[in-house]
């Protein structure tokens, strides 16, 4: 079970990393977002950071529960 959690975690980590450096995040950004007065790149960067944090929280919880 632990091995399975570890493998799933690594897969999710690599996927998030790939998304971070994909055109989805780094390209096609307008300077200021239409709906929120922040740069689009900043919003996307924040979302990616929060995803990494959420991933850690889930992993930690699953490992704690054994």
């Amino acid at each position: 079970m632990k091995n399975l959690i570890d493998k799933a975690y690594i897969l999710a980590f690599i996927t998030l990393t790939a998304i971070t450096f994909s055109p989805l995040i780094l390209q096609n950004n307008s300077a200021i977002n239409k709906y929120v007065p922040l740069p689009t790149l900043l919003i996307k960067g924040f979302i990616i950071s929060l995803c990494f944090l959420a991933l850690m929280a889930i992993y930690s919880k699953l490992r704690d529960d054994g």
Binding site: P39, L41, G45
Partner: peptide, 23 residues
Amino acid sequence: IGAWIFLGVTDVALVAFLIFIGQ
């Protein structure tokens, strides 16, 4: 703002890497 990827995202990812490899 591109520096946010370099600094913010990378540092949070650093910790996400640490939790796995450190363990």
